[in-house]
C-alpha cells in the first residue's frame, strides 16, 4: 500500500516535471521567434517576373578585343554629374541595364578602363520605350576603310614632303 502510493506520487511528480519542461520549451521557442528579426522568420521565397525593355551595351577595343571588367556609368537624362547606375562589363564585354521609362530622353552610357573609353547615347521615349536599331551596328571601321584612310593620310604627308623637296 505504502509503496504503491509512493509510486503514484513519483509518477505524478514526473508528469508535472515533463509538463513544466514542455511549457518551458514552447515558451522558449515562442520567445526566440519573437526576438528574432522578423525577416529571418520567413521561410517562403516569392519569385515573380515580368518582361522589361532593356539596353545591352557591348564594349570592345577597335582591334576587336572585348573590353571585359570595364567600368560602366549610366547617366539619366538631365543629370550628367551623378551616375544613375554603375557596374562592370562581363567577360564578353557586355552590360545590361533597364532605363527608367518614366524618365524619357537621352540616356548616356560611359564605358571606361584605364584611360580608354567611350560614350554611347540611348534614346528612351515615353511611350515607345527604348528606341534604336534592333541589332548591333558593328561600330568602328572595317579593315578596308582603315587601310584606305591610312593610305590617304600617308599620301598627304608624302605629298607635303615632295612639295618641300622640289628644288628651287
Amino acid at each position: 500500500m505504502k509503496t504503491s502510493r509512493t509510486a503514484r506520487g513519483t509518477a505524478e511528480a514526473r508528469l508535472g516535471r515533463a509538463v513544466a519542461r514542455l511549457a518551458g520549451f514552447v515558451a522558449g521557442v515562442v520567445g526566440a521567434l519573437l526576438l528574432l528579426p522578423s525577416g529571418a522568420a520567413a521561410h517562403g521565397v516569392v519569385l515573380d517576373h515580368r518582361p522589361v525593355e532593356g539596353v545591352e551595351v557591348r564594349a570592345a577595343f577597335d582591334t576587336g578585343e572585348v573590353m571585359d571588367e570595364a567600368q560602366v556609368s549610366v547617366f539619366a537624362p538631365e543629370d550628367a554629374s551623378e551616375p544613375w547606375e554603375t557596374g562592370t562589363t562581363d567577360e564578353r564585354g557586355r552590360y545590361l541595364f533597364v532605363p527608367d521609362a518614366s524618365r524619357p530622353g537621352t540616356w548616356t552610357v560611359q564605358v571606361r578602363q584605364a584611360g580608354h573609353g567611350s560614350i554611347v547615347n540611348v534614346t528612351v521615349e515615353e511611350d515607345a520605350g527604348v528606341t534604336g536599331a534592333d541589332g548591333f551596328s558593328g561600330g568602328g571601321y572595317g579593315a578596308l576603310q582603315i587601310g584606305l584612310m591610312a593610305a590617304a593620310g600617308v599620301w598627304g604627308f608624302v605629298g607635303t614632303a615632295l612639295f618641300f623637296m622640289r628644288k628651287k
Binding site: I146, G153, V154, F157, V158, T160, A161, L162, F164, M165
Partner: peptide, 22 residues
Amino acid sequence: PQAQVPKASLFTAVFFVASLVH
C-alpha cells in the same frame, strides 16, 4: 627652316600609321 620639312613630313606619316600597329 624648310630644309627639314620633307624628313619631318615623312616621319609624321610613319607616326600617323604607327598607332594602327598593335
